[in-house]
């Protein structure tokens, strides 16, 4: 049984980690889609697809160890801006999967219409807002490290991610978040 899970991972946080732990326990292999892969260097999407691959890859090392080294594929997925084609776009880029795990109503809807089995994850709602909260804390110089796995803190340090986000936030004339 191979499962599919998609997130933007801006950044990868403990909400994602708990959902993935749940999935790792239930299936043999997992395909992790990095959504909106073309996006980077914005307040909403500060990290590149490659950086997000590194975050996911390092973070799931623990989960793999806990589950007998399950196979995981990490696939960056660009947006197609046409929802009716989105599922075939995803399936054309990923190894075959049998089941989709999601709490995003539109993702659920599109995969169900395409005939996929969709399971809801236990963590509801929080997953959407945790990323926003972490980015806000990074910009406002507040403590964010306790919301992501230690391995992800390391990746963000290596790429100097917090400074990048703050620079973007400063040059962006939009709303203030602090």
């Amino acid at each position: 049984m191979r499962a599919f899970f998609i997130g933007r991972f801006q950044p990868y946080h403990l909400g994602h980690h708990e959902v993935l732990r749940e999935i790792f326990e239930e299936v043999d292999e997992i395909v992790i889609g990095i959504g909106s892969a073309q996006e980077s260097h914005t307040i909403e999407n500060p990290f590149t697809a490659g950086e997000r691959v590194m975050m996911v890859d390092r973070a799931i090392e623990d989960l793999k160890r806990e589950t007998d080294f399950r196979k995981a594929y990490i696939i960056p997925l660009e947006d197609v801006y046409r929802n009716s084609l989105w599922v075939s776009h995803v399936t054309s880029l990923c190894p075959y999967f049998d089941v989709v795990y999601s709490n995003n109503p539109l993702v659920i809807r599109l995969f169900r219409e395409a005939g996929f089995e969709v399971k809801k994850t236990k963590m509801i709602n929080r997953i959407y807002y945790q990323g926003t909260e972490i980015r806000r804390r990074m910009i406002c110089n507040e403590k964010w490290e306790d919301l992501v796995p230690e391995s992800v803190v390391q990746v963000i340090k290596e790429i100097d991610g917090v400074k990048r986000l703050r620079d973007i936030a400063n040059t962006d004339t939009g709303k203030s978040v602090c």
């Binding site: 998609i6 933007r8 959504g35 539109l106 993702v107």
Partner: peptide, 8 residues
């Protein structure tokens, strides 16, 4: 990700 349209 699919383009999020609001539900109404």
């Amino acid at each position: 990700m699919p383009t999020q349209i609001p539900e109404r």
